[in-house]
Amino acid sequence: MYLASKLNSDRDTLHTLCKTLKLGRNTPDNVIRDVNNPLAGKPAPQIVQLAGNDVQQLVEAARKVAPFADAIDLNLGCPQKHAEEGHYGAYLLPKQNWPLLAEIVSSLAQAVDVPITTKIRLTVPKEQTPELAVVLARAGSSLVTVHPRFASSVRRRKGLADLDQVIRVREALQVEGLLRSGDRPHGDTAVVSNGNVRCWSDVVTNLSLTGASGVMVGETLLENPALFRPSLPEAYEDGHFWERSSRAMAEEYIDLRYQYDAFETPFKVVRQHLQSILCSIPHNIDPEALAEQHRYAADTKRVIAAIRTEQALAKFRYC
């Protein structure tokens, strides 16, 4: 998520983002490998998510990054305190803001040549969420991603996401003739479901339950970057799924950093990624092994926190 105002005022932030997008577009490691995908062999789509509440600021920022992106997403889901204070993200969801949201989406759609998408949370009351999705679709949002939890800066993920609300959004778009799906490829807007995914089987269950066109996964991907790997044919060897260990994923992350040294990754970011991959506690762990897992995570965190130089990172990689 990038604040539109910061992209417009901070050249370094804009330069780093555009450099990242160029790198992603040109590297062979970012090519779609699924032979059954109609985009097989092409660079994986890259979407830039913008946040803000000023139409012109958002349009200006979108125009700056659109040449390097495949779509622009409007963040209407951030529940954090800074979003509340700045009146953006999920704090634009109340109904009195809907005319502004429609104006933002419409203006973005007219300003750039790439698709405009939106990510939302539940409205208050939640029964208004499908109505908001229709407003966004009519304004020009080609995807509506629904994270069916209420916005809260202190309890962002308490309890399960209400996936029934994803169904309600899909049904509302269908009734209005706006839904794009496998059965309706020419509809204006597709629905993506976000929430309750901890492993690959959850993706399958989510799609089956909601009827959404896709599933979005957030922080779980930081812990398991290979979460979607079972969708690839080469993920299976001799008829059995081959699962990557957290250590193997951490090593690959470090190797990619070395390979693409043109993009300077601060050690702070490196440590954050390594900690997410190596120190997360599996959700289905045997209770008897839980204490040992916590001890391992605590020890690993201390080792990662000490990584301050390239030499220390290399030693960590090969120890």
Rank of each mutant, 00 (worst) to 15 (best):
A4G: 15
A4R: 01
S5E: 13
D10I: 08
R11A: 14
G24Y: 09
T27E: 09
N30S: 07
I32P: 07
D34T: 07
N37M: 06
P38M: 08
Q49C: 05
A69L: 04
A83N: 06
G86D: 01
L93P: 00
N97S: 12
S106Q: 10
S107I: 06
A109R: 13
V112R: 01
V114F: 04
I116L: 01
Q128S: 02
L132K: 06
V134G: 08
L136F: 03
H147G: 04
R149I: 04
S152I: 02
V154A: 08
R155I: 06
R155Y: 12
R156Y: 07
L160K: 12
L178T: 01
L179D: 10
P185K: 13
T189H: 09
V192W: 13
V197N: 00
S201I: 06
T205Y: 06
L207P: 12
L209W: 09
V215I: 09
V217K: 02
F228L: 12
D238T: 10
H240Q: 14
W242H: 15
Y253S: 13
A262C: 14
H273N: 11
P282A: 07
D286P: 04
A289S: 12
A291T: 11
H294K: 15
D299K: 15
V303E: 14
A312G: 15
K315D: 15
Y318A: 01
